[in-house]
């Protein structure tokens, strides 16, 4: 067993890969090795894996139905038998709601992470590579979006589009892309005049090919890092919209909306608002730690 293990290790760490796939896997494995040596980042990754499992197996894990009301058992404190995290104002089990709420959180995070960075990457790299009027135009649009406070702009979008989780995602994405565009543009400006881009141009490659095949791979790593660091902010923005009643609508167990419901009892029944708050805090922290670790692994400027 251990022999095959060292065999795999050697195969992955070899200086002379024999095939395309081996070279690619070796690069991934080396990234994983350096990521693994960062205990805080591993801690963050662990929490996020737990979150994923929690969302995937919510029906198995949750002790109660998150929507079943039981007015006889409302506002039970922590440690009540059968309700370890207590119940809320309608007698719903808070633990079950938190477990189901992880699905909503992941849904928001995934959608925003798919929309905002991709939009920012396109705008930024096109602006940075083409320069001139296109650059000027795209960057002024970016400036306009940046000039609004994020939550206020999201509020305006949700107000215009109507409340709901999808519109909240859309609103957050619309307000989240400008920083990515800025980063991508700055990266592109440093790359566009480098010799290896000149070399591809001398092979007759067109701008689309250069941007997608040569500039994107170099921008993506810093964007991934930025996305993981922003995730905390995105979760908080989604929770904030939920708290203001513009995100997920009751009875959906979205964590921000749960805090909003608990607010009315915060002095006498503190756990109703605190438990979802702790959940938001933990997941945000995990994303931040993961982002820090990824930055160490992915940042191309960090030559080891």
């Amino acid at each position: 067993m251990s022999e095959t293990q060292t065999g795999w290790r050697d195969w992955l760490l070899t200086d002379t890969p024999q095939s395309r796939n081996q070279a690619r896997l070796a690069a991934l494995f080396q990234g994983w090795l350096s990521f693994r040596s960062n205990p805080m980042a591993m801690f963050g990754l662990g929490i996020l894996i737990l979150l994923l499992l929690m969302a995937a197996f919510a029906p198995l894990l949750a002790p109660h139905d998150p929507f079943t009301q039981d007015l006889a058992n409302r506002l039970k404190p922590l440690g009540t038998p059968d309700h370890p995290l207590g119940t809320d104002s309608l007698g719903r089990d808070i633990l079950s709601r938190l477990i189901y709420g992880s699905r909503i959180t992941l849904y928001i995070v995934t959608l925003v992470a798919l929309i905002a960075p991709v939009a920012g990457l396109m705008v930024g790299t096109i602006a940075g590579y083409t320069g001139g009027w296109i650059d000027l135009g795209l960057m002024r649009i970016t400036d306009i979006f940046l000039a609004f406070p994020r939550l206020v702009l999201a509020l305006a979008f949700v107000a215009a589009l109507g409340a709901g989780i999808e519109n909240a995602v859309l609103a957050i994405s619309l307000t989240a892309w400008p920083p990515y565009a800025r980063i991508a543009r700055a990266e592109t400006l440093t790359i566009r005049n480098s010799d290896y881009i000149s070399a591809v141009r001398l092979q007759g490659a067109g701008p689309i090919r250069i941007i997608t095949k040569h500039i994107w791979p170099l921008c993506i790593s810093s964007l991934i890092v930025r996305v993981t660091l922003d995730m905390a902010g995105i979760i908080l923005a989604a929770a904030g919209l939920g708290f203001l009643g513009l995100g997920a609508q009751p009875p959906s167990p979205e964590w921000g909306a749960m805090i909003s419901e608990g607010r009315r009892f915060i002095l006498d029944h503190w756990w109703v608002a605190t438990m979802p708050g702790l959940a938001i805090f933990t997941v945000s922290l995990a994303f931040n730690l993961l982002g820090d670790g990824l930055r160490d692994v992915l940042d191309p400027k960090d030559e080891k």
Partner: peptide
């Protein structure tokens, strides 16, 4: 062929 071989190959 460019001057600096450290800058003329795409790092990825």
């Amino acid at each position: 062929v460019f001057q600096d071989p450290y800058a003329s190959l795409h790092p990825r």
